[in-house]
Design a protein around this nucleic acid. Structure first.
Lengths: 182, 182
DNA sequence: TATAAATTTCAGAAATTTCTGAAATGGCTG
DNA sequence: CAGCCATTTCAGAAATTTCTGAAATTTATA
């Protein structure tokens, strides 16, 4: 498979960004390649296109599968595995957010709860700080659960409301116990 | 400085999570230590508490400053630099989101726009995919700008609305051009 | 301005992560 | 069930990142 200039540049960018995104270069490049490919690709094709070893491709695909970011496909009369990314970009975003939460937030929430369980430690400031952090994270994860429950169309509505969002909150003053009296 | 068991465990956790959060162990531990400390700490104290080299502390503090995550303080009659984290956890979250966006999203948005500028490439599918991705990222960054503009209290209102959020959207049907006809 | 204290820089050492090639495994087909 | 093709595993090599100690620089003050 021969890459277009567009593909090459996009995929090199994803490779470079990989480390910032918590994946390695190869994983970033494999994902980028699949993302831009109209048809599913097999491991051999990916190996060629990126000039990496077959085993590296295997590991990258495994990693992407553990992130739930790629889908396995099969082609009639071909027993190799083919891979794609979902067509729907919103599905991709949902997956990304969910997986990052699972890896970057949830373990900390668990740890904070565990530390709170211990009870008095002789360090009231640290205890308060930990409790406050735990509450904040719980609020944010609940909000995420809520957004996740929404249909994509509703999500898009919410996100494109812009300036009007703040004003809209006034229309439902009774809904929220934290609401300041006016 | 001698650490409590609570501090030690919290800080070790932040050290371990560091790599998932895109910082290294030392940076994570230094941040955690400052986060739990009621009073500002100087580099010497941090070095002792974490049993690391003075230069490592210096680098970690520099890194945290580049993330805008710590504040420099001075103590009367002491010319050393002292550091703290903001008291307000919401301020911390805002900083984190803003900085991660700057590092993880903005460079890609720039690259996507650059690629689109190039015009026709003979790969319409990839072009469409890139355009769609760019639009999605723009929508999300605009939403982030909007949330950033809100006061914390409003943000908390929004986040604690739960189930009611979806319903609330119906109250402003004219605001959004993407809104489906009912 | 000289001295002392605090901090930063930086080259190399140590640790960790990524990648490869070879060997092992899995599973389909004749 | 034997042979073949596809994939995975894994030990070590290569690359990258992190950390240290020493030297350099900056800053305050005598």
């Amino acid at each position: 498979m021969t890459l277009t200039e567009l593909q090459r540049e996009f995929l090199l960018h994803f490779g470079e960004m990989g480390s910032r995104w918590g994946i390695n270069r190869t994983v970033g490049q494999v994902y980028a390649l699949l993302f831009l490919s109209e048809t599913p690709l097999n491991a051999e094709t990916i190996t060629d296109a990126l000039s990496i070893s077959r085993s590296n491709t295997s590991m990258a695909l495994k990693e992407l599968q553990s992130w739930n970011l790629i889908r396995l496909r099969h082609v009639q009369g071909d027993r190799r595995d083919y891979f794609t990314t979902p067509d729907d970009l919103w599905e991709i975003v949902r997956t990304l957010v969910t997986e990052r939460r699972k890896r970057e937030i949830d373990p900390t929430l668990t740890k904070l709860r565990e530390l709170e369980m211990r009870g008095a430690t002789g360090d009231p400031y640290a205890e308060a700080r930990i409790a406050e952090l735990r509450e904040l994270i719980e609020m944010m994860t609940s909000f995420h659960d809520e957004m996740n429950r929404m249909e994509t169309e509703r999500l898009v509505e919410l996100m494109t409301m812009g300036r009007k969002l703040g004003g809209l909150l006034d229309k439902a003053p009774k809904l929220n116990p934290f609401r300041k009296a006016t």
